[in-house]
Design a protein around this nucleic acid. Structure first.
Length: 518
RNA sequence: GCCCCCAUCGUCUAGCGGCUAGGACGUAGGAUUCUCAUUCCUAAAACCGGGGUUCGAUUCCCCGUGGGGGUGCCA
């Protein structure tokens, strides 16, 4: 301990195991160090960057009987003592930006990882646009991603109201405190905050120590009487008992204003964690609303799977450190922590998100997939007249080919019309070698005597039988058949394709093809 | 201009003094003798530069450079 009666914060490194010397710095019995595998988790469960004051001594003096430290870290009593309260505080703009979504996600993850409380607070001061519509976009997006909030609009909670537009009483009270303490003064109609001018040191959970000195007094109430962001943000965080402020790095430079305010109110600032920004896919700068792929509702509309979007967003600035990428959210919650977040900005890459989406898409329940597929095709109206059962067969068949639902319409065209084009390039490639016309005739002849088209195995047997009989590869049959029935050389496996199209379509299409090309 | 943050393949990342610098997306070949946008294998592909510290730096420090952010009576 130093003269101030406080133990200096030990340097744990970033989520690494705790060193013996740090251990000793905390004044803990050396024997406990043998449980070193448990300590990092315990310490992180408490707070990776909190000031270690003498509360620690008494904490460790408490006896938890036979409880291991591991159990202690997750015990109900411990959780209550150290309840994490985080908030996501968006301004309803009518869009749900992907960067905002990730900020919400990291807050939510942290709350869930610590058994804490996730609060949604709406920063709707000086709003003029259609707020209810903007709120709907936000709530829909949050719920779609699975980011449920414990306190906030439509959820209640004891620290409300959760709309800044309804918190004028708080702002007035806190304003009075500053005026009474001579920390605020009026000038040109606006109310200015009188800074201390002291260097503001923040121990960022991600970046470590950051020091910045605020140099000018700043406005906290406009001349029209309305409070500005810095003020309401801090007041609400105090009033709502926020313990950890997890937000974008674009706020890092503002944090010195905020710590000035916290201190002016006599409140110890919360732990800050400034997460890196998401940069646009192409070109310089952070992603903005105008950029391609910037909006959550866009992915929702295009039929992306929320678990894939969430998984991808987790990987943008955070990693499990062990090469895993596709992970269930429960597992991410289990190992998520603040120091594990990167410090550098990350460029958004829709291709990788698409890759993850494909992986999830192949494993979701058929009913869920079909629902998404129907919605996507309803938009094109291409298949409106088709039999519902047939539609489902088509969608299921094409699932393996697509990475996201928005690619589905590109695969289904020829299933729903007899007037599909024969791709010139594919035709040239396939008709140019072997004896495709002969093979088609042989195939027609072979299926003439009652092959069961609902049986892919039987269909395969026909083709392999024909290939064997005529001494050619199965491809000699497969490629021309695919071309004749679909007009292209790419698509689902042939036997499934034939099964779904059914005998009537297949025969008619091949005959028509022969008439045109034979 | 001033202030703050950051820096490993094209992209997302692992690495916390000694490694053939690992994985993933994407890309290029090949395989699965059915295409392919699936799967599998292989390949190309990175430590921004310069000084230190050290027996030894991708790793620690400093300076550049580059990128990002802030600097509103926006949030």
């Amino acid at each position: 301990m130093d003269a101030g009666g406080k133990i200096k914060r030990p340097s744990f490194g970033r989520a690494g195991p705790m060193q013996l010397e740090n251990f000793q710095t905390l004044g803990l019995p050396e024997s406990l160090h043998r449980k070193t595998g448990l300590f990092p988790r315990l310490l992180q469960a408490i707070d990776p960057v909190a000031d270690i004051d003498d509360g620690w001594g008494s904490f460790f003096d408490m006896r938890f009987g036979a409880h291991t430290l591991d159990r202690l870290a997750t015990s109900a009593a411990f959780q209550v003592m150290n309840k994490v309260r985080v908030r996501f505080a968006p301004s309803p703009t009518g869009f749900f930006h992907i960067g905002s979504a990730r900020t919400a996600l990291f807050n939510w993850l942290y709350a869930r990882a610590r058994g804490g409380v996730f609060i949604l607070r709406i920063e709707d001061t000086d709003r003029t646009r259609n707020t209810s519509e903007a709120l709907r976009v936000l709530f829909d997006g949050m719920r779609w991603l699975g980011l449920d909030w414990d306190e906030g609009p439509e959820a209640g909670g004891g620290a409300g109201p959760y709309f800044q537009s309804q918190r004028d009483d708080f702002y007035r009270d806190y304003r009075e405190k500053l005026v009474a303490a001579d920390r605020a003064y009026e000038k040109e109609g606006a109310l200015f905050f009188r800074i201390s001018g002291e260097p503001q040191v923040i121990e960022d959970a991600i970046r470590g120590r950051v020091e910045r000195t605020e140099e000018k007094d700043f406005v906290i109430f406009r001349s029209d009487g309305s409070p500005v962001f810095h003020f309401v943000n801090v007041v609400d965080d105090i009033a709502m008992g926020i313990t950890h402020v997890i937000r974008g790095e674009d706020h890092l430079s503002n944090t010195s204003k905020h710590t000035e305010l916290f201190k002016a109110f006599g409140v110890e600032p919360p732990t800050f964690a400034h997460i890196p920004l998401i940069l646009k896919q192409n070109g310089p700068g952070k992603m903005s609303k105008r950029d391609e792929g910037a909006l959550i509702e866009d992915y929702q509309r295009r039929g992306f799977l929320p678990e894939a979007v969430v998984n991808y967003l987790c990987l943008l600035g955070w990693s499990p450190k062990d090469d895993r990428e596709k992970m269930p959210i429960e597992e991410i919650i289990r190992i998520f922590d603040l120091p594990g977040i990167n410090r550098n900005n990350a460029r958004f890459d829709e291709r990788k998100m698409r890759f993850l989406n494909a992986a999830y898409l192949q494993e979701i329940a058929p009913d869920r997939y079909l629902e998404l597929a129907r919605a996507a095709l309803d938009a094109t109206n291409e298949d409106s007249a088709a039999d519902p059962r047939y539609r489902e067969e088509v969608f299921l068949l094409c699932r393996e080919k697509i990475r996201a639902i928005d690619e589905l319409p590109g695969f289904t065209g020829y299933f729903f019309t007899e007037d599909f084009p024969i791709e010139e390039k594919a035709a040239r490639k396939i008709l140019g070698k072997g004896e495709p016309i002969t093979r088609l005739r042989q195939f027609l002849a072979a299926i003439g005597d009652g092959v069961d088209f609902s049986d892919e195995v039987a269909l395969e047997a026909i083709i392999t039988g024909l290939a064997g009989t005529h001494g050619v590869s199965t491809g000699e049959f497969i490629h021309p058949i695919r071309l004749a029935v679909s007009g292209t050389n790419v698509g689902p496996g042939l036997y499934g394709l034939l099964r779904v199209l059914g005998r009537d379509r297949v025969v008619a299409r091949i005959e028509r093809f022969l008439a045109a090309h034979g």
